[in-house]
């Protein structure tokens, strides 16, 4: 089952849920499927491990990347470049907005309300049940409510991103899938897709899932590790 997302996709979730890793991999996946893709790094709250760190890999694939100006790339300042509003007004066939974590990170979206007015967009919540605060249905719904309130926009779908990074196993993927499926059923929000680390994709029984799967080639790695090829 392939991922068929198009239009303006806004990726939100709690800190460390995997929004940026998913944004980068989703962009590459769709670009390789032949469609025009742009990514905007809207993470104004987290100083490390942002989409800007994969700008070279993304640009090499021909994916448009909207970042703050170079001289501010390592600043912990809330800089929202006007190019983001420009991108929303003239979006690519798939335009991904990679938003910062929690309600604090999502607040930036309210500043884009004018640009988004009248546009069709889909805001998706990334859930990793092995992270604090989103390990229960209640926690996920609380996070959803807080992000919706801060951004003044509705979340309309879920992305399952169960992982313990290098210690992720097939069993954890299955357990995580069951969890997000339950969240999906209880909340009525469709499960758009789940992620599976590329190194596990051969040993995982994909037939077990009734949603598309995004194979993740990990990009945001510490300095002693190498990023996987996209």
């Amino acid at each position: 089952m392939n991922i068929l997302l198009e239009g303006i996709i806004i990726i939100v979730g709690n800190y460390g849920s995997g929004k940026t890793e998913i944004s980068i991999n989703l962009a590459a996946n769709r670009k390789l499927a032949g469609i025009d893709v742009s990514v905007a790094d809207l993470d104004l709250v987290n100083p490390y491990f942002r989409a800007r760190e994969a700008r070279k890999q993304l640009s090499e694939l021909g994916i448009g990347v909207i970042l703050p100006p170079d001289k501010y790339l390592h600043a912990d300042l809330p800089i929202l470049t006007p190019a983001v509003a420009g991108l929303i007004r003239k979006p690519s066939r798939l335009t991904i907005l990679d938003v910062g974590g929690d309600k604090v990170g999502a607040t930036v979206l309210a500043a884009l309300a004018d640009a988004l007015d009248g546009k069709t967009y889909r805001m998706l919540q990334v859930i990793n049940p092995f992270r604090p605060f989103t390990d229960t249905l209640k926690g996920c719904m609380k996070m959803k409510g807080e992000i919706e309130k801060a951004s003044r926009m509705p979340i309309i779908g879920i992305i399952g991103n169960a992982n313990l990074i290098d210690e992720t196993t097939a069993d954890l993927i299955y357990e995580g899938y069951d969890f997000v499926s339950t969240v999906s059923q209880e909340s009525g929000l469709p499960l758009e897709f789940i992620t599976v680390p590329s190194r596990l994709s051969d040993e995982i029984d994909m037939k077990r899932f009734s949603c598309p799967v995004l194979k993740l080639h990990r990009q945001l790695v510490p300095p002693w590790k190498k990023a996987a090829g996209l």
Binding site: Y15, G16, N128, D135, N163, L164, I165, E167
Partner: peptide, 9 residues
């Protein structure tokens, strides 16, 4: 079991 955490958390 294990959970995934940021160093600061």
């Amino acid at each position: 079991g294990k959970i995934l955490m940021k160093g600061n958390e």
